[in-house]
Amino acid sequence: MDVREQVFAVMRGVGFDGDELADGKRLAEDLDIDSTELVEIVVALEQHFDITVDADAEGGFTTVGDLVGCVGRLLSAGSAARG
């Protein structure tokens, strides 16, 4: 399972329908995600992937693809740091 599929799985786990998840979907406008729900999603992603998302980055998430990209970058950076 790739990063995108895992992010989608985490989002389904916190209550989002898999049919509504796509990289271009806007969090607030298309999925009606408010700041509290975004924090819940970020915490679930942190726990699932064992990463830490910078709190300042959360304000920059506007699409599902932004979340996928952030997780991918953090996982790559973690792999590089361990390697």
Rank of each mutant, 00 (worst) to 15 (best):
residue 40 E to A: 09
residue 64 V to S: 08
residue 66 D to T: 11
residue 47 Q to Y: 11
residue 55 A to H: 14
residue 19 D to G: 02
residue 80 A to E: 09
residue 30 D to N: 01
residue 40 E to R: 10
residue 34 D to E: 03
residue 33 I to F: 02
residue 1 M to G: 15
residue 38 L to N: 01
residue 81 A to R: 13
residue 19 D to I: 00
residue 34 D to K: 04
residue 22 A to G: 08
residue 16 F to T: 00
residue 28 A to R: 14
residue 67 L to H: 08
residue 62 T to F: 12
residue 76 S to L: 07
residue 58 E to C: 12
residue 77 A to H: 04
residue 83 G to R: 12
residue 37 E to S: 11
residue 10 V to D: 07
residue 22 A to T: 01
residue 28 A to Q: 09
residue 1 M to P: 04
residue 4 R to F: 05
residue 63 T to K: 15
residue 2 D to T: 15
residue 31 L to P: 03
residue 72 G to Q: 15
residue 55 A to V: 14
residue 13 G to K: 04
residue 32 D to N: 05
residue 12 R to D: 05
residue 79 S to A: 14
residue 44 A to I: 01
residue 62 T to L: 11
residue 54 D to F: 12
residue 2 D to Q: 13
residue 38 L to I: 00
residue 74 L to S: 07
residue 78 G to H: 12
residue 19 D to A: 13
residue 62 T to E: 15
residue 68 V to K: 06
residue 46 E to R: 02
residue 8 F to S: 06
residue 65 G to L: 07
residue 33 I to R: 01
residue 26 R to K: 13
residue 37 E to F: 01
residue 78 G to N: 12
residue 52 T to R: 15
residue 4 R to Y: 09
residue 31 L to Q: 03
residue 37 E to V: 07
residue 26 R to S: 03
residue 44 A to L: 05
residue 4 R to Q: 14
residue 66 D to M: 10
residue 61 F to S: 12
residue 62 T to H: 12
residue 30 D to E: 02
residue 83 G to Q: 09
residue 16 F to R: 02
residue 28 A to G: 02
residue 18 G to A: 13
residue 75 L to V: 05
residue 78 G to Y: 05
residue 13 G to S: 02
residue 27 L to P: 02
residue 43 V to I: 12
residue 46 E to F: 02
residue 54 D to N: 15
residue 79 S to L: 07
residue 42 V to P: 01
residue 77 A to D: 12
